[in-house]
Design a protein around this nucleic acid. Structure first.
Length: 672
DNA sequence: CGTACTTGTCATGAA
DNA sequence: TATTCATGACAAGTA
């Protein structure tokens, strides 16, 4: 039987934004070249970066940098890695956003494979490459290509070519625990050429072409890639290729996926806030060689996969894996030619994005989609609004959404809209579009003369006996049918007096109809007035309550100030009493002068007696204290106007004397 | 069943 | 003088 100590509860606070802030700060540091301990040379260009960042994102960099903690490293990437492919990857490492064009998507994909970048989901490329490439490659072909690769590597692994892989997790993401036995991070030195660490110039030429001492392995798919994409490497042996390529030949085909796609990687395992931004850029190739991605975004979708999904579920963590995401991106593709959209157009909000993604052929269908989205968003992020929104949404619209495209927007629940409900463009627009103000005629608010309160009231009028308050309206409607009004009854209360009279004149109503119309108008107006009145009354009550609280606070503060002043006054009196005692026992010339002065300034005041207690031994204790205070106050009050000059000089002299007494504590006159 | 609350309506006075 | 508005009072409905 084990005796356990007292159990202590451990609480964990997990910030949902910390990782994002850290990443953003790191990117800021990189842009300012602060704390950058790594220089990456790609072709003729060099990039400053943080080794830890790249090592955490790339198996290649991890393998090459894990054992080199010295600063100012220079890493020359293999020649097969191009700036076109590496620059977006570097941006991705610091921003979790991959900017690509259909011209460079293949190059990025190839470099991502070479460098073993995580979190670039394979399915992303599976989907995007066929969509953006002109060759008509299908997603199935891309997937099949990767499957062939994994199968090939599995066969190679079975044959004994088990090279450490850069992958730390399985493709399924179900096993997020790093397996050190197969983890290259456990034995990174095996992949590092021994001559690198001895490089005295700290210039790590990591190109496999220059590290012939390393025996690396390359899978068939890489061979295929190199033979097609890198012709000059077609004749290169596997041992001369990028070390990362050897990582993918562990024999575990699933790990290859992870190495290239990053699903189930450490970052995912850490439940980091994941964001996959897909910037569909224009067909114009990027001419900006800086790391600042040009503003050529056409479609911008941000999907955060936190909180709602298990980190082990790779397919959910990588939204572009899902069929829903494919549908969305299909919308991008179907929205028109990418080049048709302005190169400087940026979709910063889902509103813009889906406005353009929505079918152009029908407003009703678009409205249905938007309502579906709004409902979904509201349910997911603003539960308080969801009910209201659902109530306001037409039932047929919701039914249509439920039966139609609702499944296409399941992934929207992962959208991170950190805005208030009022800031939600969908809800805002829906309210503005769908919330048609009652009385729906062309009369403006000023024209009707009604206040803002008319909207909810009239909205109730528009509804058809949906609630209890509409019982009156039901009765009214019944009367409307009886009198057979030639115009909508809801117009009666909303129109101006002039318009109302004009309408009565034009309609030639019967006396019964006229009486009914006037009664309806009167009651409606009065109803609104009563509501306004009650609202004002409630507002007044709230305002008065606020005033009461404010006054109570002020009162409390004044009472505290009063108590504080009393304490200060009491302390001052005690100090003054002590000072008088010290002065009375002081036999120094200064003290004699003080006493003389005291007798002078209080020649007709009993205070002089108090200042010279020896002269009046009959008074002592609290009585003398009270009397002294009283007499002194009275004297000062009575004589201040008579001899101000003498008083000022006396006060100054007293102050000097007090100061002298204070600064000379060792004076014999201050000691008994 | 009583109570508190909401809402519509009426009566009345002021503008 | 007619109309509008504000407001108190009352009644009906509801939780």
């Amino acid at each position: 039987m084990s005796v356990d100590g007292p159990r202590t509860s451990v609480f964990t606070f997990e910030s949902a934004v910390h990782s994002h802030h850290v990443l953003r700060s790191l990117d800021e540091l990189r842009r300012k070249e602060i704390l950058c301990d790594l220089k990456v040379e790609v072709e003729s260009r060099s990039f400053r970066a943080h080794s830890s960042v790249l090592a955490s994102c790339s198996d290649y960099f991890y393998t090459r940098l894990a054992n080199h903690s010295r600063p100012n490293l220079t890493v020359s990437l293999p020649v097969e890695v191009t700036v076109e492919g590496f620059e977006p990857l570097l941006q991705f490492a610091y921003t979790a956003k991959l900017h690509f064009t259909k011209e460079n998507i293949l190059e990025i994909h190839r470099c991502a494979k070479l460098l073993g970048f995580h979190n670039l989901d394979k399915a992303c490329f599976e989907f995007l490459i066929p969509k953006l490439s002109d060759g008509g490659t299908t997603a199935r072909e891309v997937k099949q290509n990767d499957e062939n690769q994994t199968l090939h590597e599995k066969s190679q692994a079975a044959s004994g070519n088990n090279i450490p892989t850069g992958d730390r997790n399985s493709d399924t993401g179900k096993d997020n625990v790093p397996q050190d036995a197969e983890n290259p991070r456990a034995t990174p030195s095996t992949d590092c050429p021994p001559d690198i660490s001895s490089d005295k110039e700290m210039h790590l030429d990591l190109s496999p072409l220059h590290t012939k001492s390393t025996s690396y392995h390359i899978g068939a798919e890489q061979d295929h890639y190199f033979q097609n994409s890198v012709p000059h490497l077609a004749s290169t042996t596997r041992a001369e290729l990028c070390p990362f390529l050897s990582m993918s030949g562990t024999g575990d085909d699933e790990k290859l996926h992870s190495a290239t796609a990053g699903c189930g990687g450490d970052i995912l395992a850490m439940e980091e806030e994941l964001a996959m931004d897909v910037h569909c850029v224009s067909t114009e190739p990027s001419t900006d060689k800086d790391l600042n991605i040009p503003d050529i975004t056409e479609g911008h979708f941000i999907q955060h996969g936190r909180d709602l999904i298990s980190p082990a579920d790779c397919s959910h963590l990588c939204p572009l894996n899902t069929a829903e995401a494919r549908n969305v991106l299909d919308c991008i593709a179907n929205a028109g030619n990418l080049s048709d959209i302005g190169t400087n157009q940026v979709f910063d909000t889902t509103e813009q994005a889906f406005s353009d993604l929505a079918p152009k052929d029908g407003v009703a269908e678009r409205s249905t989609v938007e309502r579906e989205v709004a409902e979904h968003l509201a349910k997911g992020f603003w539960p308080d609004l969801s009910s209201t929104l659902t109530e306001q949404l037409p039932l047929d619209s919701l039914d249509q959404s439920a039966a139609g495209n609702s499944s296409d927007f399941h992934w929207l629940k992962h959208l991170d809209l950190g805005a208030a409900p009022d800031d939600c463009p969908f809800l805002r627009d829906l309210s503005s579009n769908g919330g048609q103000i009652s009385g729906g005629d062309s009369l403006s608010k000023e024209d009707t003369g009604d206040s803002s309160c008319i909207s909810p009231i009239d909205s109730r009028e528009n509804s058809e006996c949906e609630s209890d308050v509409d019982s009156v309206q039901c009765d009214t409607n019944g009367q409307v049918q009886e009198v057979d009004l030639p115009f909508p009854v809801e117009q009666i209360s909303s129109m101006t007096r002039r318009a109302f009279l004009q309408m009565l004149k034009q309609q030639r109503l019967t006396p019964e109809q006229l009486e009914f119309v006037q009664d309806v108008r009167r009651r409606s107006k009065n109803r609104v007035a009563a509501q306004r009145c009650r609202k004002r009354k409630i507002d007044c009550i709230y305002r008065l309550e606020g005033d009461i609280k404010k006054l109570m606070s002020e009162k409390e503060k004044l009472l505290q100030d009063r108590d504080q002043l009393r304490l200060s006054m009491e302390e001052l009196r005690q100090n003054l009493s002590g000072l008088r005692q010290n002065l009375s026992m002081d036999t120094s010339p200064q003290s004699e002068e003080l006493q003389t002065l005291a007798r002078y300034v209080s020649s007709d005041c009993p205070t002089s007696v108090l200042l010279t207690p020896m002269a009046s031994p009959s008074l002592a204790g609290p009585d003398r204290e009270v009397q002294a205070n009283t007499c002194l106050d009275d004297f000062l009050t009575d004589n201040v106007a008579e001899d101000t000059a003498a008083l000022d000089s006396s006060i100054a002299f007293l102050q000097d004397s007090i100061q002298t007494a204070v600064t000379q504590p060792s004076a014999p006159e201050l000691t008994e």
